[in-house]
């Protein structure tokens, strides 16, 4: 069973310090049986890529509350591509609907907006990792 546990790397990219949401999500995913590696605040795309590689992550989750998602999420996708890593990226936080569509087109696997419930968060992670 252990090898089936989904490994999630969670991080705050950039200067944004709002970490209530990501900490709650970390506990939700843990309660759902996933392995959660929370990198903490003030990560860069490079530190996240390195951690995802080292931790053999199945999925990366970023939380954004400062309206920087249209710049930061593509930067993260670019860093993953440059490192030749095929790990799905999920973005959560304050992301308006219009932006969510654009981010998904750009290659973000899923966007979890401010109204997402615990069930949606867990189901979304399972879906992007396993296609469930």
């Amino acid at each position: 069973m252990a090898e089936d546990r989904i490994r999630v790397v969670l991080a705050k990219l950039g200067l944004d310090g709002h970490d209530r949401g990501i900490k709650v999500v970390a506990r939700m995913l843990r309660d759902a049986g996933m392995e959660v590696i929370y990198l903490g605040l003030r990560q860069t795309a490079d530190t996240i890529v390195a951690a995802a590689e080292q931790e053999d992550a199945d999925v990366i989750g970023l939380s954004m509350h400062n309206a920087g998602h249209l710049t930061l999420a593509p930067a993260m996708l670019g860093a993953l591509r440059a490192a030749d890593l095929d790990i799905p990226l999920v973005v959560g936080g304050i992301v308006p609907d219009d932006d969510a569509a654009g981010l998904e087109e750009a290659g973000v696997a899923a966007v979890l907006g401010p109204g997402a419930t615990a069930e949606e968060v867990v189901a979304t992670i399972r879906r992007v990792v396993r296609g469930e």
Partner: peptide
């Protein structure tokens, strides 16, 4: 904005995507 709150200028690499946003 976030860079100002964190002691970073708008031309810092840390400021990418955050200038004038919040």
């Amino acid at each position: 904005d976030m860079p100002t709150l964190m002691g970073r200028d708008s031309d810092s690499p840390w400021a990418l995507g955050e200038v004038g946003r919040a």
